[in-house]
Design a protein around this nucleic acid. Structure first.
Lengths: 175, 175
DNA sequence: TCAAAAGTGTTTTCTGTACACCCATGC
DNA sequence: GCATGGGTGTACAGAAAACACTTTTGA
């Protein structure tokens, strides 16, 4: 499923291997029922780095907005966006999709900031680390990341194989 | 949304006021792509009592199966059913949809059996009652139900108004 | 009086949350 | 040496889980 959407994304925006999920199918009831438009909406999670390089050049009219600054949208598009955000907030709590939005190597702080942004809350650093490391899905690398004049941060990568196995066994992640 | 599906249900099966939710939109990729069939699937929760009376007469070819005994289904229908079951199991945990499947007056044991069936587990009687009554969404009636040679059971009804209000405030139910 | 389901509290374990200080680095 | 974000452990409270006996009825 979502094959067409995936191909679209790939051809139009040059993005592959992104998290892509069907959102909802919207039927515009308020228009002429004989000429009814039905939109099967998908949403994707795209790393900002990927987007700004490849996609920005290929799909010239695509743009990037912070949630708080999205302009007025045509038709029911605002509604669709709202649906997507609600879904994302719900989904992020029991499925570790946060990792889709980070580069392959990332620090725990980056991950935390991401979750804080999506959930629109603040999280306790120690508790966050405790919990997320407790899932045993993050592999510490031998590298660190130096960014600014402070202690370098440990880099991790997400263990997709392990995650796939646990998911098959009906494992439950709750952040 | 789901207006058409609701009308269908009402006209074809004579069922109204049932819980109806969009499930997923299935595109049959494996058929000829130019003559592609796209199915927007919905699922509904129907009280067995309603179904066997009204619906059974109107929609003559509709039948009722226990999950374990559903016959082989055509096309991708088995896949659709599996999707619905997964969704139901997930949904039942944070939204009290169990009540949709019971008559207006019901006992706590009935409710518990329902949850056990859907979740495919056993639940502790005392813990279940404690939790479910803790939500303060069940109103005890002055009636009891006698069914068999044992102590009669207290009947309850679900407080839909209160639920609607709590839901608006972003309340979180977790069973 | 027996079988069968209804009903009821307490203890223990686990999970979530709050909270403060040292560390490594660049300037 | 100081500013900045990285990194760590413990104590407390509330939630979840385990657990066994009495009650009411029909036969």
């Amino acid at each position: 499923m979502g094959v067409a959407g995936r191909r679209e994304l790939e051809e139009e925006a040059g993005l592959r291997n992104v998290f892509l999920e069907q959102l909802y199918t919207f039927g515009a009831v308020d228009r002429d029922p004989r000429e009814r438009v039905v939109s099967v909406a998908y949403y994707a999670l795209v790393k900002l780095a990927d987007f700004s390089t490849k996609a920005a050049t290929d799909a010239a009219d695509a743009r990037w907005f912070p949630i708080s600054k999205v302009p007025r949208l045509a038709f029911d598009h605002a509604n669709i966006l709202a649906t997507a955000l609600t879904r994302l907030k719900g989904k992020v709590r029991y499925q570790p999709i946060g990792f889709e939005l980070l580069p392959p190597k990332f620090t725990l702080s980056q991950l935390q900031h991401l979750y804080e942004a999506v959930l629109e809350t603040n999280l306790d650093k120690r508790n966050f680390r405790k919990k997320v490391l407790g899932f045993d899905l993050l592999l510490p690398l031998k590298e660190t990341q130096m960014a600014g004049r402070h202690r370098p941060a440990q880099l991790f990568r997400f263990d997709t194989d392990k995650y796939a196995k646990l998911k098959k066994r009906g494992f439950n992640f709750e952040l």
